[in-house]
Each structure stands twice: as C-alpha cells, then as structure tokens.
C-alpha cells in the first residue's frame, strides 16, 4: 500500500518532468534556446501582478472541467463530453445574464445555477443512455459535444442576437467580475469565479470521501456487479455521476460567460477547456486536490506560453505538445512503474 501511494505521487511528477525535458529537446532541435524558452514561459505566468492574475483566471475553468472528468471517472465513466457541457453552461449563464432583470443576490446565483443545470442536463443524456441501454458514454459524449456546439451557435445567431456573432455584455448584476481583484492584479481579468472553483473542489472531496452518495458512486466504479449485489441502484448512480460531472463542467462555462468575457460568441471550434480537463483529471489522479494542483500547472503552462513567441521566438503550440506528452506518460504509467521497480532492484 505504501509503495502504491509513493507511485501515485511519483508518476505524475516524473511525467511532468519528462514532458518538460521533451519540450526542451524539441526547442533545441528547432533551433531555440530552451533556457530562454522556459524563462519566457515563467515570466509569462509569474512575471508581474497582471500575469499572475491572468494565470489564476485561466486556472479557474480548468479546475472545474478537471473535476467534471475526475468525478465521472470515480464511477468508472469517461466523460469526454466536458467540452459540450462547458459550451451549454456558458450559453445558459449568458442567457440568464441577459434576459433577467433582478438584484445581484438573485441574479448571479440564478445565472450560475442555470449553467450548472444546463451542464447537468448535457451529462444526464449520456448517463441515462449508459444506465438504461448500455450505450458507451465515450461515443455519446463526443456526439453531444458537436450537438452543443452547433445548437449554441444557432441560438447565438438567431435568438440572442440579430444575426451577429457576439452577444451584448451581461447585466452587471450577473457578473463575477471584480474591480477589487482587477485592481490588485493591474487590470487582469481575474474574477470571483476562482473561489467558486475552489469551493467546487471542496464539494467534490466532501461528496466522494464523506457521504454515502460518494461511497456508492465509488463502489459502482470499482465493481458494478458487487454494488448491485449489495443493493445499490447502479443505474441511478451512473446517471447521478454523469449529471454531477456535467454540472461541474457547466460551472466552468459560467466562469467564462459571467467572469472572463461577460458575453458569448459564435465558435468556429471547441473551447478546448473540456479536453484540457481530461489531461487535468488524469494528472491529478482523479482526486479533488490533485485536480486543483494539475489545473494550476496547466494554467501556468498555457498562460506562460503566451509570452514564448515574443520572449524567445518559440511558437505557443510547444505547450500543447508538452501537455500531450504528459498525458502519454501518465497514461503509460505501467511502463514507468515497471522501470522504477527495475531501477530499485538493480540499486540494491
């Protein structure tokens, strides 16, 4: 057991290191100075108050999409649909933000709840199909992503606006933006959503570790047949898990809609928040605390990447390559584990 725990901590760390080393090698091969490259990345993420604020801003939705993937994973479900759930959550949040006129203490919670609900519905569909008909959730969630994208674009064009590509800004009573936070971070787009994301992580930890609901969800993830034999309702738990996961992703959409942008625009492709969430959950070993750490790491990498072209002439996509490699290394943990054990034996 103790050995397993050490591996669970070692493998993500080794994977990140290997990813960064691979990134350095790629920079070397393509004629850049890796030290300058990583220095630019560091400055881009931590250089001053503004970049710090932006890094935190970028981390916020990643925490939530990471939770969305991790939560479903604990029940043995693979939620590739976080992407679509983010989009419908974003749409719902902005829609409520535009359409309703109410004081802030009603309007803001309502907009956030709408986002969570929209995401939950988008997670509910693959959940019920899996539970009742045994349809694989991976394929359904991929399809739901595209359905979300196209329907959302259509609603933006024809319902929320008169054939334009961006909605008006939401009412200030539904906004998460904070002049105070912007003030201390030199006018970055940091908003109160950061607190919501951390709170959501705490909620996931509490649900999974401290409630009977979480116990059942985990049990179903470990062994459906045993759970059924023990009298648990497997179908209900699968649906519940997907719906809660969807709600987390929907909240990530609210962060963008109510916090960062205050609008929603027609999208030509995906936001990638949901797909990044897969990487975050994987690196965070599907635990709430791990997800927060992994989200911070990816937030840093992605925000810092913005500085790399100007600071060192390195294209920002280097970070995408690094993240992809980190996913590979974590996913192939079997081989890292094997190498570690081998290494240890030879050392003796």
């Amino acid at each position: 057991m103790a050995r397993n725990r050490i591996f669970n901590i070692l493998i993500p760390i080794i994977s990140v290191l290997l990813g960064l080393i691979a990134g350095a090698i790629i920079m070397l091969i393509s004629g850049h100075n890796p030290i300058e490259g990583y220095r630019a990345l560091w400055n881009g993420a931590f250089g001053d108050a503004f970049t710090l604020g932006e890094t935190a801003r970028r981390t916020t939705p990643l925490i939530l999409t990471g939770l969305a993937v991790a939560f479903a994973f604990r029940t043995g479900l693979f939620n590739i649909g976080a992407e679509g759930q983010v989009i419908v959550g974003w749409l719902a949040a902005v829609w409520v933000g535009l359409a309703i006129d109410a004081p802030m203490y009603i309007h803001l919670p309502l907009a956030i709840a709408a986002a969570a609900l929209a995401g939950a519905i988008w997670g509910f569909v693959p959940g019920i199909l899996k539970a009742k008909l045994g349809v694989h959730e991976v394929i359904v969630t991929i399809m739901m992503n595209y359905i979300a994208l196209f329907i959302t674009n259509e609603i933006i064009r024809n319902v929320l606006t008169d054939h334009t590509t961006t909605t008006e800004a939401i009412a200030p009573t539904a906004s998460l933006a904070s002049e105070w936070l912007q003030g201390i971070t030199y006018f970055s787009r940091l908003h109160y959503g950061f607190l919501i994301a951390l709170f959501a992580a705490a909620v996931m930890w509490f649900l999974i570790q401290r409630t009977t609901i979480g116990y059942e969800l985990k049990a179903v993830g470990f062994n459906q047949h045993a759970s059924k034999y023990a009298g648990m309702n497997v179908s209900k738990n699968i649906i519940l898990s997907m719906a809660i996961a969807g709600a987390f992703a929907g909240l990530a959409g609210a962060m963008e809609g109510l916090g960062t942008y205050g609008t929603i625009s027609v999208m030509s492709g995906f936001t990638n928040l949901g797909f990044d969430g897969i990487a975050v959950a994987l690196l965070g070993a599907n635990t709430a605390f791990g997800v927060v750490l992994a989200a911070i790491l990816f937030g840093v990498l992605k925000e810092g990447a913005g500085e790399m072209p100007t600071g060192a002439g390195v294209p920002t996509e280097l970070v995408d390559i690094i993240i992809a490699l980190i996913i590979f290394f974590v996913a192939s943990s079997y081989i890292i584990r094997w190498a570690l054990i081998r290494f240890k034996k030879e050392g003796k």
Binding site: I80, V138, L318, I321, I323, F328, A331
Partner: peptide
Amino acid sequence: SFRADQVVSGVAINFLALGIGVYLTKQ
C-alpha cells in the same frame, strides 16, 4: 505495449498532432 487507456492515448494523439502541426507551421 504500455497498456495505456486507449481512449486517453487517443486524446493525447489528437493534442499532439495539432500541437506538432501548428508548431511546425509557425516555425
């Protein structure tokens, strides 16, 4: 060979291809 989760590995392939493609295009 490495017994990685096939879905995860596929997701990583998607990231990697786009990353390499756009990186080299810019380069």
